[in-house]
């Protein structure tokens, strides 16, 4: 199997649309080769992901969360809707970035070419890649400026969409449903704790955060909100979620400067309904 990785995702999408997935298309400069990828996989990945790519490598028993099972072709970090395959670029980015708070390190020390080769090999573990195409990318409109009104609206949405039931009223990953969560393989899984830093498993930017709750993280309890959430609301939610992170996000700083004078106006998030500022 051969894949191409472009550094510019837009080019990738255009090329896919014109040439079709799975064919030998020329995009950017990289061409991933599964044969080279196999050699690299057996050196760097096999210990956790296993010789069959099913996530049952010899280290897997001691790893939590468990290594990805490539035979199911279900992936957390995608630019595509829930239930669809990710793009090559998504897989490339995941290998490059690694998964913060898991055993999967960033593979930036490998060359871009090597990571493209690994993408090509990872795709040989499931027949889904022959049968299906990646879904259409979730559109992300331009980000509006950060405002207190937007953050308050996002806070309301965090309550209304019941995000807090898993992620906790203050985003510490300690909501009432948190202890019961399991992944698709019935392994316990923890919701993201926003206090752990300003990175997410699927990226670091506000666009990445927007994408996470619009695509959902397939294979985990985190659902997609794409069907019901409007883009303006989604951006408001992004800005609120950033206030749950440590002080060094711009949103958290804005919020923390505003909060002391307005503490009386906002209710706590939780079962009683902690919607935004009271009238």
């Amino acid at each position: 199997m051969r894949v191409k990785i472009s550094s510019v995702a837009v080019f990738l999408a255009v090329a896919f649309a014109s040439a079709g997935f799975g064919q030998s298309v020329e995009i950017g400069k990289l061409e991933g080769r599964a044969s080279t990828g196999k050699v690299l996989y057996r050196r760097y990945c096999i210990g956790c992901h296993g010789p069959e790519g099913d996530g049952n490598g010899e280290n897997a028993a001691w790893i939590d969360p468990k290594p990805r099972d490539f035979t199911a072709a279900v992936f957390k970090c995608r630019s595509t809707p829930t239930g669809t395959l990710p793009t090559d670029q998504d897989l490339f980015d995941a290998i490059t970035r690694g998964f913060v708070t898991t055993n999967m390190p960033p593979w930036k020390p490998l060359t871009n070419q090597n990571r493209a080769d690994l993408v090509a090999y990872v795709k040989t573990f499931s027949a889904r890649w022959e049968e299906e195409k990646p879904g259409p990318a979730i559109a992300i409109p331009p980000e509006p400026p950060i405002t207190i009104a937007g953050i308050l609206h996002g806070r309301e949405l965090f309550q209304k969409n019941d995000c807090w039931k898993c992620h906790g009223p203050e985003g510490h990953g300690d909501g009432p449903s948190a202890p019961t969560l399991t992944d698709t393989k019935d392994n316990p899984i923890r919701p993201h704790n926003f206090a752990t830093g300003s990175r997410f498993k699927c990226g670091i930017s506000n666009q990445d955060l927007y994408r996470i709750f619009m695509t959902g993280l397939d294979g985990t309890p985190m659902p997609s909100y794409a069907d019901t959430m409007q883009p303006a609301d989604a951006w408001a939610l992004v800005h609120f979620l950033r206030t749950l992170q440590p002080f060094h996000t711009q949103e958290a700083a804005t919020w923390k400067a505003w909060l002391p004078g307005h503490r009386e106006e906002i209710k706590a998030i939780g079962p009683e309904g902690g919607s935004g500022a009271s009238p």
């Binding site: 199911a72 279900v74 829930t82 239930g83 669809t84 209304k160 969409n161 019941d162 698709t184 959902g216 397939d218 294979g219 985990t220 309890p221 985190m222 659902p223 997609s224 909100y225 794409a226 069907d227 019901t228």
Partner: peptide, 12 residues
Amino acid sequence: NREWNKAQPPGT
């Protein structure tokens, strides 16, 4: 089939 996961808030 494909595994998917979609949120459905009240009133949607």
